[in-house]
């Protein structure tokens, strides 16, 4: 894969973590229990940490002057963000947030396991190796909640099943390879998405079985994030996230 493609692949990794981290940060002070409030914001901070590493690395591959992680996070516009549509979906209720997290965590874990083992980009491998420990905890946390809510009360079961049904249409995008993925897979940087999908299915199905939830049919899948075409709420997320650095450029602590 050439340098611009390499940069794009890293931007995707960084943007997935950044946007999900920003979404989870919105729970700060609002989660159903103090303990869960801290858990969600801990996960958000883990994701922002991963973002810093991936975006810095992506910025160093820029044609011309290299870009910092802050420049990439705060001074790009909507179409330049290449995150999955799944991670930008609004928090909704706690069940929506948990299902979004659950679907992404298992994908992110498998992806990080591949990244940590490849030798095309050793810096990315080191970042992924560190992130794996964090993502394992995230996947464990979200999976346990899916089981609790699914196998909980009638109301919690119905609500979390609805979350699953509504978010399912964003799962196809994780496993659809475009030209960046194809180049990444050829070079060894990125995992083969067909194999990844099989592993993801197994992991997701095991949890869903325990949770008594029904896996939705693979119907029409909404896509566009990887091309910079986002869903309705994304502009509001960016506006909030970027307001300070754009109002006060170069502001420091």
């Amino acid at each position: 894969m050439n340098k611009p493609q390499h940069k794009q692949a890293l931007l995707r990794l960084g943007d997935d973590a950044l946007i999900l981290g920003q979404r989870l940060g919105e729970w700060c002070g609002h989660a159903p229990a103090l303990e869960e409030d801290i858990a969600l914001t801990n996960i958000a901070l883990d994701l922002i940490g991963q973002t810093q590493s991936y975006l810095s690395l992506a910025g160093s591959l820029n044609e011309g002057e290299s870009q910092t992680d802050d420049q990439l996070a705060f001074h790009r516009t909507e179409r330049d963000f290449k995150n999955l549509l799944l991670v930008e979906q609004p928090n909704g209720d706690f069940g929506d947030t948990i299902v979004r997290q659950f679907l992404f965590d298992h994908f992110a874990l498998l992806r990080a396991e591949h990244l940590a083992s490849q030798t095309f980009d050793l810096e990315a491998a080191a970042i992924a190796a560190k992130a794996i420990k964090e993502i394992r905890y995230h996947a464990d946390h979200s999976s346990k909640w899916v089981i609790r809510l699914g196998d909980g009360t009638t109301e919690s079961h119905e609500r979390v099943q609805k979350s699953l049904n509504e978010l399912w249409k964003f799962t196809g995008e994780m496993f659809t390879a475009d030209e960046i993925d194809v180049a990444g897979i050829e070079s060894g940087l990125l995992p083969d998405l067909t194999i990844l999908k099989t592993k993801w299915d197994t992991a997701i199905d095991a949890v869903l079985k325990k949770s008594t939830l029904i896996r939705p049919e693979n119907g029409w899948m909404q896509q566009g994030g990887r091309k910079g075409i986002h869903t309705e709420s994304f502009g509001f997320l960016l506006a909030e996230m970027q307001s300070l650095p754009r109002t006060y450029p170069d502001a420091t602590w």
Partner: peptide, 20 residues
Amino acid sequence: SLHAADAEMAIGNARDVYTR
């Protein structure tokens, strides 16, 4: 101290609240 539905959740919550 903290609140949790069961022991497993209590360990998870303790990790998040007290070992950050």
